[in-house]
C-alpha cells in the first residue's frame, strides 16, 4: 500500500498511483444515476436541483433514468402513502445492485407534517434500508447536494472485500425486501422487522439487523 502523502507527491509529479478499490469506487461514485421518481413537494426541489442554477450534473448525477433497472439511486422525495408504499418497495426491488436510497424530506423520514394521517407511511425506512436522510420540508437544493456528497463519501469508503463491503459483493446479503400487502385497515405487516428493528422500552431487546441485513449484537 502506498502511503497517502507519497501518493499526493507522486500525483504532483504526474504519476498516478491507485488501487483497484479506489478506482472502482471513484467510477461508481462519479456516475450515480438517480431514478426519475418524484412523490410530492420535495420532488419539485429535486427537479430544481437538476436545473441550471444548482446543476446536479456537476456530481455526475444528471441522468435521471425512468426505469429502475438503469438507476443506482432512489431519491424518495416526498410523502410515501400507504397506497404507494408497496410500489416504492417493488421499485426498489427492481433496481439492480449496487443501489442506494436517499430519504429526502421530513415525510420520507418519518411522515413529517402529515404524520398523523391515516394513509401516510411514517417513514420509508420501515420497509427499505435508507443510506442518507435529509431533513427539511422541503430540503433546499443545497441540502440535496450535500446528501449527494455524503452518499459519494459513503461509496468511496466501501471496501471491496471483508466486513462492510457493498451488498452486491456479498452473496449472503439480502437485496430484495418483502412488499407489504394492502389490508382491510392498514398495511400488512406495518413494518419490515428486518430493516426497522424497533426498540420497545422495557421489553427485552430483539434481534437487530444493520443496514445490509446482517445481524448485529442484540444487547443495549
Amino acid at each position: 500500500m502506498v502511503d497517502n502523502e507519497l501518493k499526493i507527491e507522486l500525483g504532483k509529479q504526474g504519476i498516478l498511483v491507485t488501487t483497484i478499490e479506489e478506482l472502482y469506487n471513484w467510477g461508481r461514485r462519479s456516475s450515480v444515476w438517480p431514478m426519475q421518481f418524484g412523490l410530492a413537494c420535495c420532488a419539485i426541489e429535486m427537479i430544481a436541483t437538476t436545473m441550471a442554477r444548482y446543476d446536479l450534473a456537476r456530481f455526475g448525477a444528471e441522468v435521471f433514468r425512468p426505469s429502475p433497472r438503469q438507476a443506482d439511486l432512489m431519491i424518495v422525495s416526498g410523502t410515501v402513502t400507504k397506497k404507494m408504499a408497496p410500489q416504492v418497495v417493488r421499485l426498489y426491488n427492481q433496481m439492480a445492485e449496487p443501489k442506494y436510497v436517499i430519504a429526502m424530506g421530513a415525510c420520507a423520514i418519518s411522515g413529517g407534517p402529515f404524520k398523523q394521517g391515516y394513509n401516510v407511511l411514517k417513514g420509508i425506512d420501515r420497509y427499505i434500508p435508507v443510506d442518507v436522510h435529509i431533513p427539511g420540508c422541503p430540503p433546499r437544493p443545497e441540502a440535496l447536494i450535500q446528501a449527494f456528497m455524503t452518499l459519494q463519501k459513503k461509496i468511496d469508503g466501501q471496501p471491496l472485500t471483508g466486513e462492510g463491503r457493498p451488498r452486491f459483493l456479498d452473496a449472503d446479503a439480502q437485496c430484495e425486501f418483502p412488499v407489504p400487502e394492502q389490508g382491510a385497515h392498514d398495511l400488512e405487516p406495518p413494518s419490515n422487522q428486518g430493516v426497522w428493528p424497533v426498540e420497545i422500552q422495557g421489553v427485552g431487546s430483539r434481534e437487530r439487523r444493520d443496514i445490509d441485513g446482517r445481524q448485529v449484537s442484540t444487547d443495549h
Binding site: K115, Q116, Y118, K122, H185, D186, V198
Partner: peptide
C-alpha cells in the same frame, strides 16, 4: 390503525 411505534417527536398528540 395503531402504527405509532417509535416516535421521537415534538408533537404532543403523536
Amino acid at each position: 390503525p395503531d402504527d405509532y411505534e417509535y416516535e421521537p417527536t415534538a408533537h404532543d398528540a403523536v
